[in-house]
């Protein structure tokens, strides 16, 4: 498996470490239903068979977080963006970044 890092180009998956589902957004800890929403955020996953948005960290490269869309049935990668660009493209402050992850 090779991951196309937007900064470094296509690199062996060995250079990256994996965090997981990139569709999760950290809840507001001050919200009244925060315990429920944190339970969801920390533990529950869609775990789709097919397209999956996920965080990879290019540890042995540019050391940036990359948001990758990968098919979990075939391992084919449809695209990759730097976390920052992915968030900016989301167009609002709710766009999540990996610092938000558990």
């Amino acid at each position: 498996m090779r991951i196309p890092c937007p900064y470094c180009g296509e690199r062996d998956a060995h250079e990256f470490s994996y965090l997981g589902d990139a569709t999760l957004t950290r809840p507001d800890p001050a919200a009244p239903d925060a315990p429920d929403r944190f339970f969801d955020y920390v533990y529950l996953r869609d775990n789709p068979a097919g397209a999956h948005q996920e965080w990879w960290y290019h540890a042995y490269g540019c050391r940036q977080w990359v948001k990758v869309e990968r098919n979990t049935l075939t391992h084919a990668i449809a695209g990759a963006r730097l976390a920052r660009d992915a968030r900016d493209a989301a167009g609002d402050a709710a766009g999540n970044v990996p610092g938000d992850a558990p």
Binding site: A13, H14, Y18, D21, N47, A49, T72, T74
Partner: peptide, 16 residues
């Protein structure tokens, strides 16, 4: 291997 997968096969980094 360490990433979500439903493919019943893995990748070379773990083989190595």
């Amino acid at each position: 291997d360490g990433y979500n997968s439903y493919a019943q096969r893995g990748n070379l980094p773990v083989v190595e």
